[in-house]
Amino acid sequence: MNFQDIVLRLHNFWRGHGCLILHPYDVETGAGTFNPATFFGTLGPNALRVGYLEPSRRPTDGRYGKNPIRLRLHHQYQAVLKPPPANIQEMYLDSLEGLGMNLAEHDVKFAEDDWESPTLAAWGVGWQVCLDEMEISQFTYFQQMAGINLDPVSVELTYGLERIAMVLQGVESTYDLRWNDGISYGTLWREKERQFSVYNFESAAVERIQKMFTLCEEECRASLVAGLVFPAYDYALKCSHLFNILDARHAISITERESFIARIRELAKACAQGYLGTGGIDACPTT
């Protein structure tokens, strides 16, 4: 099964379970959790079921296109269900079978891996799901988002699509994956991985990025003052991404690190409070 078919099958599977099928967010994110559909959607009392693809940028994970499984940008498929159905684990395993995996032939483990995002002031309890000891998904019951206790809680299923595709296609390297039947993952992404690795590790202009961070932070705060939580959140996302670049550049000392994270966290919390306070709940997708 090629890469794009996997995405389409997951869309179909979760659509069948009542999920609203959305699209990747068009601001850089480090994980599907940062997509506003999840960040705002998990807040408040309304039920939620969504599924979407999310390209996730993690500058420190870049390997110049040379490591078979570690990537600066990988693709997550994300399903969020609020409240979580009682058979959610079976549902998840069904979705893997739906991708043509015969789970009886593999070793499937739910290994403890509680999730925490200091920048989003969010945490949850759950596992990394391992297929033959390769982590293919993160499975999390969110308990808090933006410092707010969630009630009801949400469950987030995050599929690492490259890893899953490697199992399905039986290849040793991400770059050997078939995106469709004619074009390989390597053709599409290897040069981008190389260039971004050079950029993130060696070339990004630290001072400029730091300035951009400050500008985005100011813009976020200004938008919050104006009561515009969604634009504000976009700039919080930008701050998070710029921070990740500085981190990859080793431009942040340990003390500064804490304070950078705290600055982003304050923005995220303010966005969430603004959202809950301004009747933003009515705007969130429900099913």
Binding site: I69, H106, D107, D132
Partner: peptide, 30 residues
């Protein structure tokens, strides 16, 4: 490694384990 389940008749799990170990060692070498 220890699979949660029964014997790995076709060596599928073994191949998977070796692939993971290989990738991780490549990371360590990096």
């Amino acid at each position: 490694g220890f699979r949660d389940g029964m014997a790995d008749k076709d060596g599928i799990v073994r191949a998977g384990y070796e692939r993971v170990v290989q990738a991780r060692l490549r990371d360590s070498r990096f």
